[in-house]
């Protein structure tokens, strides 16, 4: 995956993963066709691992900082020379992971917009069952048109 990323700076949002509150993968989408494909199994493992690591990092926050336990968050950003992973956790424990190019600006705006699309097209869809994999055409349509317009 890393080798290819250097050539792809025209498309700066690489992919999106949504993890439910139990650590299960409910949605993943690559926005760049040139990315190496990861098998579904590996993605599930990745989601589960991240969920665990996130829980550990949350309890790693030093108590000397005086942050109340409710406000402690886990990993928010993970950066490498090739990509940056931004994690946004909702109040209900759903996690949005966005893989972007390391210098991508306004990732917060993008991830909030993705959350908004999720709240609209997934949560308001009567055919979506909570915590289950997301198969909502309207959500994917909205997502694609938003990311393409970036």
């Amino acid at each position: 995956m890393n080798m290819l990323l250097q050539e792809l700076d025209n498309m700066v949002v690489y992919s999106l993963i949504i993890i439910n509150k139990a650590g299960g993968l409910v949605f993943n989408r690559d926005f760049n066709p040139a990315l190496n494909k990861i098998s579904v199994n590996d993605l599930l493992v990745l989601a589960g691992t991240f969920h665990g690591v996130h829980a550990i990092t949350k309890s790693l926050t030093p108590s000397s900082l005086g942050i109340p336990s409710k406000e402690r968050t886990g990993i928010e950003v993970l950066e490498s020379s090739q990509f940056r992973l931004t994690c946004f956790q909702t109040f209900t424990g759903t996690k949005f992971l966005l893989f972007t190019e390391p210098h991508q600006p306004n990732v917060d705006t993008i991830i909030h917009k993705v959350y908004e699309l999720y709240a609209d097209y997934v949560m308001k869809n009567p055919f979506y069952q909570l915590e289950m994999p997301i198969r909502c055409e309207a959500f994917e349509r909205g997502l694609m048109s938003y990311i393409r317009a970036k």
């Binding site: 097209y121 308001k124 869809n125 009567p126 055919f127 198969r135 055409e137 309207a138």
Partner: peptide
């Protein structure tokens, strides 16, 4: 229908 995505197996349905 704005926020509704009908699953493939129910494609005939229109809410």
């Amino acid at each position: 229908n704005q926020y509704i995505s009908v699953p493939k197996e129910m494609s005939q349905l229109n809410c």
